[in-house]
């Protein structure tokens, strides 16, 4: 429990990361800009059209996708948050002892219950 309060990170520790971030942004932006100016520019309408293996394009790509992918995203959000809960536990795990483990077991049971539910519900079924 104390971990949350006694975290040693100070803002100073993030300074190098900020430096790296700035460096990364500059690097990426610079590279894109350079390549943009270096390359030839001979635009034709065909070239700028969407490429679909030479077949004429029908419709727009802005349309609803299969709901499955969306479902995966939602499930990820839910389960990932549940996973996040394990992290603080993992760090304080030894000091919490068996009692903490019992609580986590309960949590895991619910985790499994949810997992089993979506599994039975067919949310993870990919072949229709």
């Amino acid at each position: 429990m104390m971990y949350l309060l006694d975290a040693l990170s100070t803002p100073a520790q993030y300074l190098p990361i900020a430096i790296q971030f700035a460096f990364g942004v500059l690097f990426v932006a610079g590279m894109i800009a350079i390549s943009h100016f270096l390359g030839p520019k001979r635009n034709t309408s065909d070239k700028l059209d969407t490429f679909e293996s030479g077949i004429e394009q029908i419709g727009n790509a802005r349309q609803p996708m299969a709901i499955k992918y969306f479902l995966v995203a939602i499930l990820f959000v839910l389960f990932d948050v549940e996973v996040i809960f394990f992290y603080p536990y993992a760090l304080n795990f030894k000091s919490l002892g068996w009692e903490g483990f019992a609580a986590v077991c309960m949590f895991v049971t619910f985790f499994f219950a949810g997992f089993f539910y979506i599994y039975k519900k067919g949310a993870l079924k990919w072949e229709d």
Partner: peptide, 14 residues
């Protein structure tokens, strides 16, 4: 809050 927000995201996006 994060957990609840996640639940809200799930429901809301749906």
């Amino acid at each position: 809050i994060m957990v609840v927000a996640a639940a809200e995201v799930a429901v809301g996006l749906a």
